[in-house]
Amino acid sequence: MPSTFFTEPPHWRWLIILYFFFGGLAGGCYFVASMLDLMGRPSDRPLARLGYLLAFPTVVVCGILLIADLGRPERFWHMMLQSATWRPMLKTYSPMSLGAWGLLVFGGFAFLSFLGALADGGRRRPLAVLRPPGLIGRVIAVLGGLAGFFLVSYTGVLLAVTNRPIWSDTTLLGAVFLVSSASTSIALLLLLGSRRVFLVGGLRALQRFDMIVLVLELLTLAALVVSLGSLARVWLNAWGALLVLGVVGLGIVVPLLLHARARTPLSSEARAAAVLVLLGGFLLRVVIVLSSEAI
């Protein structure tokens, strides 16, 4: 029996699963929005604005979920400051320590871009410099986008840097969560943008983006199973069925087919595909977290 099977589960359950899901959406919506701002057309600005408007409130929810999950929530600040000396608490080799700082840094950029996005609405014009195309806006978008990439993937590395079965038996969970965060975030933007006809150009580009990302997700998941080797047998149960039918079938294959059928990103097929991608992304985190917790 592999040595990882002699360990105990850390009791990371629904609050952590929700954090992994919403953290993926917060970081993903931000980096997709920054890509739209930096690489897209001027007509894509409203779509990017939607991404920034989603990212900041979602990362606030993430913070609340993480604090609520602690055994001693009132000591959450011990992650950032040493309680005895008040010096900064940072361990570069601890993913959770880095993640706590990453969440704070990302939250800062998400807040600035959120203000910039609100300014785009018209009332607070001076704050519009917080969004591209100006230099300050570009710097914020690039650094915030990088922080977003970190936020969506460190959670997978965090699981790998344990001694638990499945989690620590592969090094691909960070990449899997990153690709899944991209697919779910694009899906959320497609879903929320699909009522606005004037966004159709950007939505078409996002739809193509999502289809490629879904194929990448399929490949990363296959690589994950291969990397587990004979240990993948632990998924020969209900969790494995949920992974194949829920995550791969409903969350990747069916949305790919629906996107291929959809004539426009405003169609009901495209909207259904987006909903299924979001469901698949959530189920992926459920399977990864709970299948190891159950051992």
Binding site: L70, M79, N163
Partner: peptide, 13 residues
Amino acid sequence: VCNGCRDCIGACP
């Protein structure tokens, strides 16, 4: 000092 994050539980071999 511990705030009950439980990272150490899964890390202990």
